[in-house]
């Protein structure tokens, strides 16, 4: 891989994770109850534990926040 393409790969990854950090922060502050009703009184330690996942899976988290869910999980 040329240096240029290697830089682009890392730039894309970094950009993705930057958006993820933003989504994760906003979700932890305001959206947790909407994401999972059982999580309303979540301790800080657990919030920090799930932050990396919120960052990595932010498109899925946004979809869940907007109320999209698989049919079979909606019993």
């Amino acid at each position: 891989m040329a240096e240029r393409s290697a830089e682009i790969v890392w730039l894309l990854l970094g950009g993705y994770l930057a958006v993820g950090l933003l989504v994760a922060g906003l979700t932890l502050l305001f959206g947790l109850r909407r994401l999972e009703p059982g999580a309303s009184a979540m301790p800080l330690a657990v919030r920090l534990l799930i932050a990396p996942g919120l960052t990595a899976l932010w498109p899925l988290v946004l979809a869940r926040l907007m109320g999209l869910r698989a049919q079979e999980d909606r019993r």
Binding site: E36, V46, I50, G53, T55, L57, L60, V61, R64
Partner: peptide, 11 residues
């Protein structure tokens, strides 16, 4: 990052 049960419930 998604091994906590929270993720099992969210996803």
């Amino acid at each position: 990052a998604t091994s906590h049960d929270f993720w099992n419930n969210v996803l």
